[in-house]
Design a protein around this nucleic acid. Structure first.
Lengths: 233, 233
DNA sequence: CGATGACTTGACACCAATCAACTGAGGTGG
DNA sequence: CCACCTCAGTTGATTGGTGTCAAGTCATCG
């Protein structure tokens, strides 16, 4: 191994088989890695800002990121939640249309967008991976739309808890799942089009029901998943 | 020209330079056209149903289509509006996750999904077009999320009117634009997470303001676009 | 231990859902 | 041609849910 055989530490990358890079041959992946860089962001840190020129293409390696917008009164609306292995990029567009903010301390691999686009044109397997990633994000955006379009606060919050629980742990869809909320109450509220107080009251309601249990401020256990699913629509 | 030189009538297709087929060379496009078929759907007709096997990939040539889902109480939620040139497909997935319904009389070119996927793997230009289309749908889904996440009915309806006006006519973003709503009040309501009555009342409100004018049941003129934009957030 | 910020709870007002009646447009049939 | 039907849309009265404002609690950190 030469000194620069693994500049980004791809060797022990937790998302190496999920992220778009997995569509590249070893050699191309290395070429990309040489021109990329790994960056850490603290919770709350701004990664890209709406209006920025779209020059980068990134992969979320660890942590959690939200995309959001603000209207002119400064009211924020979250339009996407991104998990590790997600691609952060605006392909085919001159500039960014939303803020990207780290929800928890996060790690990203950042590449020049132009490089990613040119690599993708010469490597169909890479482009297919990017298409898959985009398709997955589209499906998830539509799921969110379904969620946010619900008419009662109860259904919205229940649905969000189920989404967040699944994100944490797809393995055991059973009772007593405990997971850590990556979102504050305020972030849940801007995501669902509700207020902090309403989100809080819904959580209290579910806890009174025995549907969930709050453990500390950020941790939630789902005691009765079927009750939660029933509440979700 | 031989008898089968233009089986789908691509020659005078209104979206021939916009749809994904435009990513193909003449010869490949013809090969695809030979295995596709053109179908008409009446307003309200079901094109694909949630749960169906994902065997087709279609292009909306003319008309308008919505994607929607129902919860177990039968409450419908619309998760996307598709315009001419949009691709209707669930790539990389075994089955369909939402109903596709014609909003107006519509015309679609339908192809076997397997064929589209294999063509895309052998023609990078075609895959890039599909990626572009998917990226555009993702952007539009996030715009919708922004819209539906607004907290007042007034802002939601105002935003929707602006979206619909743009869809009809991007050319003149000025006053006195008149356009035909492709959606009934009920469809606007399921899209925004409101009720028919609320949508109706908001429209009446905007009309009293002098912001819009209703002309017949389905036609709307925007008299004061900036007032509408102000109301939209 | 005090300060800060996130969260919860309460009281109240208001907006949107609900239920119900009415209007108007389009279509059918006598 | 008009009467009638049907369905989408509008409007009104009322209720209930969610936003708002305000106070209070809890966790974390210096």
């Amino acid at each position: 191994m030469t000194t620069h055989s693994d500049p980004l530490g791809c060797g022990d990358c937790p998302v190496r088989d999920l992220a778009i890079c997995s569509g590249l041959e070893e050699q191309e992946r290395l070429a990309l890695a040489r021109l990329g860089l790994k960056r850490h962001y603290r919770r709350g840190e701004l990664i890209f800002a709406s209006g920025d020129e779209s020059v980068a293409c990134a992969t979320l390696v660890a942590g959690a990121v939200k995309l959001s917008r603000c209207d002119r009164d400064g009211v924020e609306r979250t339009i996407a939640l991104l998990q590790p292995s997600s691609m952060l990029a605006r392909l085919f567009a001159a500039d960014i249309d939303s803020d990207a903010v780290a929800l928890t301390d996060s790690e990203l691999c950042v590449f020049p967008r132009s490089l990613v686009e040119s690599e993708m044109r010469s490597h169909p397997g890479f482009m297919e991976r990017i298409l898959q990633a985009t398709t997955a994000q589209l499906a998830s955006a539509r799921d969110m739309l379904d969620l946010v379009g619900r008419r009662s606060a109860r259904a919205k919050v229940a649905g969000l808890l189920l989404v967040l629980a699944d994100e944490v742990d797809t393995a055991s869809p059973s009772a007593n799942r405990e997971f850590v909320l990556p979102l504050t109450r305020g972030e849940m509220a801007t995501l669902l089009g509700l207020t902090i107080e309403t989100v809080s009251r819904q959580l209290t309601g579910f806890e009174r029901d025995g549907t969930i249990e709050r453990r500390g401020l950020k941790s939630i256990a789902i005691l009765n998943p079927s009750a939660l699913r029933a509440a979700a629509d």
